[in-house]
Design a protein around this nucleic acid. Structure first.
Lengths: 244, 244
DNA sequence: ATTGAATAGATCCTATAGGGTCTATGATCC
DNA sequence: GGATCATAGACCCTATAGGATCTATTCAAT
């Protein structure tokens, strides 16, 4: 999610970002817990004790508490007052369908609005896609005879590049609310990736489909990017639900 | 927003709501601060001191801190680490256009998905509209010679009924992510209402346009609700930006 | 007069302690 | 044997205190 350019700190809902992001302790705690949630080390249903986390992270309960409140709105954890926080259950098949339906709503709308800015978009999209291809190559190269990558950090980087491709289009829509909503959905998307570790298998397909989207934007036809994006999201949804 | 059926407490991202919502102190603080933000008693730019709020609300800083973290994600307040919280500036004309663009994206998508459930939807929509008409009548009756309503609680009720009409359609879409996103946007929508107090003047128009949407659903034509909703949102956007 | 540093106040951030609630275990009664 | 109640432990929730940071004012120097 947003770990590099931190949108939580100094979140200017209507202002410019500070050149040097000022971070309090609670922001670091937020990242640490998010990391645990996304790499799957905390199974769904397990309780997130405030005191436990504070001891493990060697901080006081107060920043932990704030980080959990912030995490609550992502849907990755659920809270019951006077009972505590728990890791949210993985998305059901219905919720999964709803998630990709929502992504289709948002990202097709983004494409519709991005076609008018195609001149600014295409270079950025080319760069984003190039980075993804590079990461994909690195992952493909490293995975040995077992077919699974040895270094997960490369996989993480690939996922980030993949998602960045989508974000580039959404940013080009010029709608801040659209972007913010898509970012809030990214947590679920990322968690899906590690749950279904087939993420390594559909790597080439995703790269190809992104290439198709890029080519569609380059064509100048305002309709082609729409169908390309729709097909890509449908294909991803198919692959994800097939693994479930 | 969600003050009656509290979605913050015991938020089951994938579960049933508890029959009796368990509330901690921080939930009440959240409501209290939200109230202050929406009724305009705290002008944009004013700082929200944690200790100050704690003294005024007669609680300790900790629950105030948690409530502020929760409010931060609504966009109504902005935070700068090590500096504090401030009431966010009102939406600029561009942001306002983006907000209504986003609403159009979400609500037209909701309409598209709701038409398949039209049999379940129409009765609920009729009831919601009836409540809105009732509230509108009450407001219209009460406002005296000065043309402004004397009791603001009636106006609040009308706004709630208006928004409930939209929520009813969005719920019928069956997409939880869509619903959640719309709810998170409601804070901005409600703040707009009180900022531009012309909310009392376009009361009849809004009721009429809602009636048109309802009639469109009743017609059975799947296209008519779409255009009715689009026109309604465009009309609201026009009225809002005209007052700005 | 303007710039610069230094000080004081306020505020945020973090840590620690105590009260209240919930869950679980074990004993008692029917 | 099953159910009810009591007790103990863990945890959440709230309150208070101290350290760190920022802003504003004041004063001195150029």
């Amino acid at each position: 999610m947003n770990r590099n350019e931190n949108s939580a700190v100094a979140a200017p809902a209507a202002g410019r970002k500070p050149v040097v992001p000022r971070r309090a302790l609670r922001d670091g705690v937020y990242d640490a817990i998010l990391e645990r949630l996304l790499d799957g080390s905390t199974p769904p249903g397990s309780s997130l004790g405030i005191d436990s986390l504070a001891r493990e992270l060697e901080v006081s309960p107060t920043p932990v508490r704030e980080a959990l409140v912030q995490l609550e709105h992502t849907g990755l954890i659920s809270r019951v007052a006077l009972k505590g926080y728990r890791v949210a259950a993985p998305l059901s098949s219905e919720q999964l369908a709803e998630l990709f339906d929502m992504r289709t709503i948002l990202e097709t709308a983004a494409v519709e609005r991005a076609v008018s800015q195609v001149d600014d978009l295409v270079p950025e999209l080319r760069a984003a896609h190039a980075r993804q291809v590079l990461c994909a190559h690195r992952v493909r190269k490293l995975r040995g005879a077992d077919g699974r990558p040895t270094d997960f950090s490369d996989l993480r980087e690939y996922f980030a590049a993949d998602w960045e491709f989508h974000l580039t289009i959404i940013r080009a829509s010029g709608n801040r609310f659209l972007l913010k909503t898509a970012e809030s959905l990214s947590a679920h998307v990322h968690r899906l990736r590690q749950t279904a570790d087939h993420g390594t298998t559909d790597l080439e397909q995703a790269v190809d489909e992104h290439a198709a989207i890029l080519a569609a934007f380059e064509s100048g036809d305002p309709e082609r990017p729409l169908v390309a994006m729709r097909e890509h999201l449908a294909a991803v949804a198919r692959r994800v639900s097939a693994a479930g």
